[in-house]
């Protein structure tokens, strides 16, 4: 169980992550690239769920390294991680905050940050993470 406040707090721990509000939804970016964002379902998204009820919000979208990584995350993570047709061919996954663990959320945000950070900054952060361990 997590909330958008948790996302904001965890994102703030990442180097140079910037929070912004766009169209009433929160986004978190690194060097101008959005790596995580609040993603309410559009009418078209809801329609595509058909008879199935869409997962209850809030929903967070996070970038992943590439499409292979996306497949891997969806195959191995809990049901809190999912995707919708609008994200087909796009390297990102959706997370239902109500059902995700704090740890899985934190890992997803770190991975998303790495997927978007400029190589220099990513290397530097990787260095500090290794020293901490």
């Amino acid at each position: 169980m997590a909330t958008l406040e948790d996302v904001a707090r965890l994102a703030k721990d990442l180097p140079e992550a910037a929070e912004a509000e766009r169209r009433g939804s929160l986004t978190w970016a690194i060097a101008g690239k959005v790596f995580a964002w609040e993603r309410p379902f559009s009418k078209a998204d809801v329609k595509r769920f058909g008879a199935t009820a869409p997962p209850e919000g809030p929903i967070l979208a996070v970038r992943v390294a590439d499409l292979a990584e996306k497949e891997a995350v969806l195959a191995t993570s809990s049901n809190a991680f999912f995707t919708i047709p609008h994200f087909d061919g796009f390297s990102a996954v959706l997370i239902q905050l109500k059902t995700v663990t704090q740890e899985a959320l934190r890992d997803a945000l770190v991975d998303a940050w790495f997927a978007c950070a400029p190589p220099k900054l990513a290397d530097a952060y990787l260095g500090t993470l290794r020293t901490r361990q």
Binding site: R22, R23, T27, K33, V34, W37, R39, A61, R63, H86, F87, F90, A92
Partner: peptide, 10 residues
């Protein structure tokens, strides 16, 4: 028009 973050990134 303001695109979704995913459409903008894509």
């Amino acid at each position: 028009f303001t695109p979704n973050p995913e459409d903008f990134a894509r």
